[in-house]
Design a binder for these strands. Structure first.
Lengths: 309, 309
DNA sequence: TCGATCATGAAGCGACGCTACATGGTCGAT
DNA sequence: ATCGACCATGTAGCGTCGCTTCATGATCGA
């Protein structure tokens, strides 16, 4: 027998906390993200469980873990958040104005490429405050950033299956081929394309093996039939460009990002016989994507990215 | 410039009150419906307006009226209520049990026909408490009852455009032809159908002119070319049946409802050359329709009605 | 014009949720 | 194995919020 009105006393704020817990994984992390004390978060969870008469959270070692019921309710809470955000967006649409703070995470090269133009475009919406933060993480970790940021600009190589991003809104920003970067005085610099065989015996500068670009390099080696010789590994693209320009090696670099920054100081030559590129996209939680201010930022971001295609 | 976080402080309870105001039309009525004092309702509205910085309600004579903004927000509030009810239903589905109180309004004859069997069927769901109330109103007023009841069983004649019921969920229960009810010893009682011309010169018993059945009588008169002679007007169907059975006149009566009650005491003969019938349907507000307990009741109601088709 | 009806304001009270601080449990490093 | 760092939770105290009760003002119908 189920008592009537149990759910009536459930507060949407409590549901939101549960949902954040599902994404952040610890009470302390939720407290940080919500500007509350850990005790407050813990109390909210306790109240929620008492009102529903169900165990949602259990201790696991030093931290906590959601029970099955907790996970289920967290999923429901996510849809509630989305509905609430949609309602707010409808209201803002009715009122005409757009306002609020949007937190945007970019990896370095995308920030360099897109943020200046994005800020120019956002000048049309003085009510929207845009906070941009650089976060360079591995390909699979971008999704996790959506717990902390409204919009996450992520990249992945386009030859593999996309990493898991269940329940996230995804918007394509840029499809960016990887070109071979050569010093201007290199024999191949004038070519309109090069094959893997042309470049396999050069000295290469590449990122660490976990990064998408390096996987392309692996594919290139496979196609040429010989291993590639990597003389230096760095994740810092501007450094890579400078090294290439001075003849310390050649590299695979994203076309638009690089051209925007280093045009004229090195040559970018398309790679033949190998599909090599990376995809830049925006990731958002649905409730955040529903916010009017986020939508405005996203549209500006898409427009800015399109100007490089 | 829009300040950040205005909506954050908006309480869904406040939105719900605004929505109820849009449907009930007065602060006092909302207070009655929500078991709150009128002052509390008034204060909630005041707080909501202060937090949003918008006038939602204005005085109109002795009562209040919603502004345009108020109406817009009330519409948004309705979708929020629906989302919340859907979330609760999802949760109940996950937990397995069904519980809660469902308030059902029926007009008299439908109640007589459907409620006993409905209660039998609901015995399978002991957690659901069913309150049934008789409400006989005019055709166009059924929609208004959805503010006070979870499920409203309504009827309308099927030859006219349905009355306005914007934003309501509608579920067909019964399509019920109108037959000509005759005393058992009437000359036409043995016929398998009668035409308007056959019965136009009889003495008729009918409801008041605003009721759907009387409109059919008007159509019958138009087809026969002569006015119909109404000797008595009553909205009470059992009385009509008794009068017909004793030879005080004939009447148009809904087939299933009447047969269920008066089988063997009068004859029901289908009417030829005239599409005459009434439709019985269930009306619900979307947020109430989303509730798990309401869904259970509705399914039982549909099944019970189907047993009469 | 009077009484009924409706909305709103003021005062007081209770519930709720937060912070600050203390406690107990768990893991990693030495 | 021990210590220290970290994490979650319980307790005490306090401020805020929303409700009820009562009073007031406005409007409509008889």
């Amino acid at each position: 027998m189920i008592e009537d009105g149990l759910w009536r006393r459930v507060d949407v704020a409590h549901l939101a906390v549960l949902r954040e817990l599902a994404e952040h994984g610890s009470v302390t992390a939720v407290a940080r993200a919500t500007a509350l004390s850990p005790s407050a978060v813990s109390q909210q969870l306790k109240v929620l469980q008492r009102r529903l008469g169900v165990v949602l959270v259990e201790r696991a070692g030093r931290g906590v873990r959601l029970t099955d019921a907790g996970r289920a309710l967290a999923g429901i809470a996510a849809s509630v958040s989305t509905a609430l955000a949609t309602a707010e967006a409808d209201w803002q649409r009715y009122r005409g104005g757009v306002g609020g703070t949007v937190r945007l995470a970019t990896f370095h090269s995308a920030g360099e490429l897109l943020v200046p133009g994005l800020l120019d475009r956002m000048a049309q919406h003085p009510g929207v405050v845009l906070e941009t933060v650089d976060e360079d993480v591995l390909q699979d970790d971008f999704a996790g950033l959506t717990a902390d940021y409204d919009v996450v600009v992520a990249h992945r190589s386009d030859d593999v299956v996309p990493p898991r991003r269940d329940g996230l809104e995804v918007r394509l920003l840029l499809r960016e081929p990887l070109d071979v970067a050569l010093p201007l005085d290199h024999p191949l610099a004038g070519r309109d394309r090069v094959t893997p065989a042309d470049v396999i015996d050069e000295d290469w500068i590449a990122p660490p093996p976990e990064f998408p670009i390096d996987r392309v390099l692996t594919a290139l080696a496979a196609q040429a039939g010989r291993p590639v010789r990597v003389v230096r590994r760095t994740t810092h693209l501007p450094l890579t460009e400078k090294l290439v320009a001075r003849g310390h090696g050649i590299a695979l670099l994203p076309r638009h990002t690089t051209r925007d920054r280093a045009e004229g100081r090195l040559a970018l030559v398309p790679l033949a016989d190998l599909r090599a590129g990376r995809v830049v996209e925006a990731l958002m939680r649905p409730d955040r994507a529903a916010r009017r201010s986020v939508q405005v930022v996203l549209e500006a971001l898409v427009a800015e990215a399109a100007s490089y295609a």
